[in-house]
């Protein structure tokens, strides 16, 4: 269900984005940093769904709050002639990797558990077969 919603959202967003007008170049650097912030929030949201700690209020406030804060930092950096947005990018990408790690760990564990169960089942079947063979003989 969640996966479906993400895929449908991405597809619809791509279609709308393709047909939307372009923004002016002055603001494109702000949009870029906002995109990174939003990407971080979405990964964080997925990770918290997996951890069963998802809170909509925190998620939405993080989505907009992070984006706005990143844009404000970029503007401030432009005024001070310091590339503060680099720091924001580093933090966001680092958190993205952390969240991605959580997601990856969850699915890897799920997969290994399944493989283990299959392995557990298989030897039993083999034993049954051998037992049956012995009975036939």
């Amino acid at each position: 269900m969640v996966v479906f919603a993400i895929i449908i959202g991405c597809l619809l967003g791509a279609i709308i984005g393709m047909n939307a007008p372009t923004i002016s170049y002055t603001y494109s650097s702000y949009l870029a940093i906002a995109i990174i912030a939003a990407l971080d929030s979405v990964f964080g949201g997925i990770a918290s769904v997996i951890n069963k700690k998802f809170d909509i209020k925190i998620f939405i406030s993080g989505f907009f709050g992070n984006a706005v804060l990143a844009i404000l930092l970029t503007i401030l950096g432009e005024k001070l002639n310091v590339d503060i947005y680099l720091a924001a990018i580093v933090v966001f990408v680092w958190r993205m990797f952390m969240n991605l790690g959580t997601i990856r760990r969850y699915y890897v564990e799920k997969w290994t558990n399944r493989v283990k169960e299959m392995h557990k089942n298989k030897p039993e079947q083999k034993e049954n077969i051998t037992v049956a063979d012995e009975k036939q003989t």
């Binding site: 969640v2 959202g9 967003g13």
Partner: peptide, 15 residues
């Protein structure tokens, strides 16, 4: 909520 966020995100990326 996640779907809407993804929509906004991909829209931003495309633009």
């Amino acid at each position: 909520v996640l779907g809407i966020m993804c929509l906004a995100l991909t829209m931003g990326i495309c633009i």
